[in-house]
Amino acid sequence: MTPRDRIRYFFSSHRTGLSVCLLALFLLVYPAWVGNPYLLGISNLIAVYLIAVIGLNLFIGYAGQISLGHAAYLGLGAYGSALLTVHLGINPWLAMAATAVAVGLTAFLVAIPTLRLSGHYLAMATLGFNIVCYTVMMQWDRVTGGPSGLAGIPHLSLAGVAIDDETRFHYLAWGAAILVLTLGLNLARSSLGLALAAVAQNETAAASLGIQVHRAKIRIFVLSAVLASVAGSLFAHCYTFINPDSFTIFNSVELVTMVVIGGLGSIWGSLFGASLIILLPEFLHFFETFRDIIHGLIVVTVLILLPQGLVSGLKDLLRMRLLRKANNARN
């Protein structure tokens, strides 16, 4: 092996790790480069959503299941954190952890009967769960504040320093997001990830290979719910105010849209999908009236032309083109 080959081999075998490092490096200097709190606020929102979207992508993209109710877990995380800190005065970090555990347990109990369902029945059940959670957040106003929401949620703080401005929150949120991204990339190649891919292809075949289908599905569902809960908690502690309107079925659909646009089963795609959907309103600012239509048109166009999502789809297109070129050169 020549040194050049060795370098090439190093890069190709470590491309995932190197990409993550590159992204981390970029994010490390990003606040110094941008500095504008408004822009940082937007990228922070991307980080928070990314955590939930990666979890959802593991469930939809890898396990091939459907959930139209993940905003409910986002909401449970946000409200759990908010209620524990506002009403009981518990330390925000502790509240976040306790909420994540509680949401994980809830998701486990919900998953046992729910994940026996499949297809449209599963879509309905997750949708129904979201509507139930939203209605309780709206109607139980003595505790949740009802439609006017909950204010005065404390910021997180680290070693006595409150994480109360965009730059500090940038490091927290993106730190967490990079961690989750790495987790997602690794999980996809772990035995659980491969088991889930088999389940997505054919449940019966997967079961005959010795995969405990129901258990694998429950595991990934609980993981995705916990990630959504953490994202919800971060959301609450970042904005110090929440109301039920952030956790409707439309938000669930938006989360799914981020997964689908980026590409089912593509973790890097999730990063792209979350960024695109959150940045879109910023670009469409000046024609507010057409926002929904353009939003929908983008989703529909992507799904019709590149049903495997923008990132995976464009990658496939590029690969096909290169192959064709190589073929032509040979002939």
Binding site: V256, T257, H295, G296, V299, L303
Partner: peptide, 8 residues
């Protein structure tokens, strides 16, 4: 998901 997009 396509019908959801069309619905939007």
């Amino acid at each position: 998901f396509l019908t959801i997009g069309l619905s939007v």
